[in-house]
Computed example of a mutant assay.
Amino acid sequence: MIKSELIEKLAAENRHLTHGEVERVVNVILNGMTDALSQGGRVEIRGFGAFSVRDRPARAGRNPRTGEAVDVPAKSVPFFKSGKELRERLNASGDA
């Protein structure tokens, strides 16, 4: 599901809200999550999962075309850990 599909689904289920209002609500939520993560915080949605930031140290990499050594700088990356309810729903549908 992409952002526009989420907005369409929410607008269809909440006919009392305009498409623009639903889009603003989704944007406020996503911007709030982004701001919290960019400040080093954590975002937890009970039953769904938790987003956090992990730091990756600088390392030596290789250019795949030339094989030349390249310095890869340190960076922060988002990390998602699924919640118990989400894992249970995903695994319940795949009883093999």
Rank of each mutant, 00 (worst) to 15 (best):
A36N: 05
N14W: 13
S52K: 11
R59W: 00
H16I: 10
E68S: 11
L86D: 03
V28H: 08
N27D: 15
G83A: 05
H16K: 14
A36F: 01
P73F: 10
Q39D: 13
E88P: 06
N63W: 01
G41H: 02
F51M: 02
S76M: 12
K81Q: 08
R15D: 10
E44A: 09
I45C: 10
H16V: 13
I29V: 14
L86H: 08
E8V: 09
N91R: 10
V43D: 00
R24A: 14
T34V: 10
A12C: 05
T18P: 05
E44S: 12
G49N: 05
D71C: 13
A60R: 15
T34K: 14
D71F: 14
R62M: 09
D55L: 13
L17P: 03
G20Q: 11
V28W: 07
V26K: 02
L37P: 00
N14Y: 05
S82C: 11
F80T: 03
A92E: 13
S82R: 04
V77R: 03
L90R: 06
G61K: 03
E68H: 09
P73W: 11
A74S: 07
R59N: 03
N91G: 08
H19N: 13
E8W: 09
G49D: 00
L90F: 13
E88W: 00
M33T: 08
N31L: 11
V25T: 14
L90G: 14
R46F: 05
V77N: 04
R15L: 15
V22M: 07
R87W: 09
L37W: 06
G49Q: 02
L86I: 06
Q39L: 09
